[in-house]
Computed example of a mutant assay.
Amino acid sequence: MGAGAPVPEPRGPGPRALARRRRRHSAARFWRAYRTRRSGMFGLALLVLLALLALTAPLTVGAEVRSVTRATGGPMEGPSGAFWLGTDQFGRDLCGLLVWGARVSLMVGLLAAVLSVAIGAVVGVTAGHFRGWYATVVMRVTDWFLVMPTLVLAIALATVLSRSLTTVVLAIGVTTWPTTARLVRAQTLAVESRPYIERARALGGGHGHVMSRHVLPNVMPLVLAQTTLGISGAILAEATLAFLGLGDPTVTSWGGMLQDAREAGAVSAGHWWYLVPPGIAIATVALAFTLCGRAVESVLNPRLGATG
């Protein structure tokens, strides 16, 4: 390089690096605010514990706990040192079944809630952006789903389709999205009334650019809060469908355990150890997700105030 050649100035971080840095800072601010919500931290601790139990079930209790031919206890034995929660009508350890059932209940609840929120977000964003006849037709369909009993629609779908976990996820997901669609559409209308949306359109931004770059990032906090709140409802819906005999009979879930207890006559026989643990597990995980969802909602929407 010659003596008279200009020295290049050091370049700063690129747009992608800046975007990643902003996301990290936003996540750090969110976590600092979330930690101040005691109820949210309590719900998160419960979820972490349940997730660890579900993930380690193949190592801690083993898949053979679900086998009828490998049962090691007698039918309907009460709680004891060998079987902490007693046994079912086949002699299987109910404690092991409860831990194994957490895998199915949590997975179905999470997938169904994600599907429901994804449908609601797409419908809400497009209806709020395009307006006109499209929004009118879509929102009338949404209103129809809102006035119809969700459980009845889910039962109808689960009855028509084959009995599997995929059917349960679809039945819950495609019947519980209207509330999210309504909320996301209202947020989309509020976002698109801001001046920078007009500037983006004036600079040549198309529909896809406006929705993906400007509208969607602003509605994502609402979508995240709806997801955490919807998981608890999805788990309760899965338990209800399984209790009604519309779940997958080849898998073990908490709702399926309640169905098996009903068929085995545990209610009339007073075998409380067969009924109470699955019910408490369903209520606990629903409470944990609700606490987390409320905490997330209060962090993302400061107008709700610090309620932790």
Score class of each variant (00 low, 15 high):
V169Y: 12
V169P: 09
V169L: 10
L170Q: 14
A171C: 09
A171Y: 14
I172F: 07
I172W: 00
I172K: 01
G173R: 11
V174G: 11
V174F: 13
V174C: 07
V174S: 14
T175F: 04
W177K: 03
P178W: 00
P178K: 01
P178T: 01
T180I: 06
T180S: 14
T180E: 01
T180N: 12
L183E: 08
L183N: 13
V184A: 00
V184I: 06
R185Q: 15
A186D: 02
A186G: 14
A186H: 03
Q187F: 07
Q187M: 10
Q187E: 15
T188P: 01
L189A: 05
L189W: 08
A190N: 13
A190F: 00
A190R: 14
A190W: 02
V191E: 01
V191H: 13
E192V: 15
E192Y: 07
S193I: 00
S193F: 03
R194D: 04
R194E: 05
P195H: 03
Y196L: 09
I197H: 06
I197M: 10
I197D: 02
E198Y: 06
E198S: 09
E198P: 01
R199N: 12
R199H: 14
R199W: 09
A200Y: 00
A202M: 10
L203F: 04
L203C: 12
G204L: 07
G204C: 08
G204H: 05
G206I: 00
G206K: 11
G206T: 04
H207K: 10
H207Y: 09
H207Q: 08
H207E: 08
H207C: 11
G208Q: 06
H209D: 03
V210I: 07
V210W: 00
M211F: 02
M211S: 05
S212Y: 13
S212D: 13
S212L: 15
R213G: 02
H214C: 06
V215H: 01
V215R: 00
L216A: 14
L216W: 03
N218T: 05
N218A: 06
V219T: 05
V219P: 08
V219Q: 05
M220V: 13
M220A: 15
P221Q: 02
L222I: 12
L222H: 10
L222G: 09
L222W: 10
L222R: 11
V223E: 15
V223Y: 06
L224C: 08
L224I: 14
A225D: 01
A225M: 05
A225W: 11
Q226I: 10
T227M: 06
T227V: 15
T228R: 08
T228P: 04
T228G: 11
L229T: 10
G230K: 09
I231P: 03
S232D: 07
S232V: 04
S232A: 15
G233T: 00
G233W: 04
A234E: 09
A234T: 11
I235K: 00
I235L: 02
L236Y: 07
A237N: 05
E238W: 10
E238H: 07
E238Q: 08
A239F: 01
T240C: 03
L241S: 07
L241C: 06
